[in-house]
């Protein structure tokens, strides 16, 4: 299996944020993680990307046990992520932001050319020399995804990529996520907007109180009674 976790648990004192989760992800599939606030979605992604260390359990990537690998080591293996609140290097230019992940990649021959291609893909080429703190929120979100893509990831975690984005920019981001899958990247994303989730996701995982309560193709999850009750409000 491409990416899998076994008995993954994260406790903060007495509170269990992720409770004994075992799940696997197939290559080149877009998976959405949904669930109410406090379900443990972001903690789960933080554990998978290496931002947090699990209390118990194991994480495997391409068959390799990466449980104890730090976030930069996981990034070098091809695991990238974005954050719930847009996280970019505010004082640096758009160009420099994209250059940083490229510097950590080995065998990046033509960095400038790669940056240009990435910025063009995300339609950011016209603001390449602008300081990233001065660009719009939607562009910052695109820049964050552009940086993640610059790591040439096999697996990409996106934490609420549409949060705070206007409807026009949402379309661009959704389009880019679907295109990433076409280029061979496995995407796992957290999202609250069910309509957008159904547009993008092949698979949906539903989390509740730190556990996975449902997993399956989008169509089946939508009809799941338990999911309707705890997340979709019985609709």
């Amino acid at each position: 299996m491409f990416f899998r976790v076994e008995n993954l648990t994260k406790k903060f004192g007495e509170f269990t944020a992720v409770n004994n989760v075992s799940v696997s992800f197939e290559k080149n599939v877009i998976t959405a993680i949904i669930g109410p606030n406090g379900a443990g979605k972001t903690t789960f992604v933080n554990l998978c990307s290496g931002l947090l260390k699990p209390t118990n359990g194991y994480i495997f990537f391409n068959g390799e046990d990466i449980t104890n690998y730090k976030i930069h080591k996981r990034a070098s293996l091809g695991i990238a992520r974005t954050f719930q609140i847009v996280n970019i290097f505010q004082g640096l230019s758009v160009w420099e932001n994209v250059k940083i992940p490229l510097l950590s990649r080995k065998n990046t021959r033509d960095i400038d050319n790669t940056i240009t291609k990435l910025l063009t893909f995300f339609k950011l080429e016209n603001i390449r020399y602008t300081t990233s703190s001065e660009i719009s929120h939607g562009d910052q979100r695109l820049l964050e995804m552009c940086m993640a893509l610059a790591l040439n990831p096999q697996l990409l975690f996106l934490d609420e990529p549409l949060a705070g984005i206007n409807p026009q920019d949402r379309g661009v981001i959704i389009e880019r996520i679907v295109e990433m899958k076409r280029s061979g990247i496995t995407v796992i994303f957290i999202e609250h907007d069910i309509e957008s989730v159904l547009k993008m996701a092949d698979e949906i995982i539903v989390m509740h109180k730190g556990e996975i309560v449902a997993k399956g193709p989008s169509s089946s999850i939508k009809e799941n009674d338990f999911v309707k009750e705890i997340y979709l409000g019985g609709c």
Binding site: L51, N87, L103
Partner: peptide, 16 residues
């Protein structure tokens, strides 16, 4: 400069 700006983000972008 990236590390000075945000160490966590720098690490997430592959900087050791």
């Amino acid at each position: 400069r990236a590390t000075i700006s945000d160490i966590e983000l720098a690490m997430a972008n592959g900087i050791n």
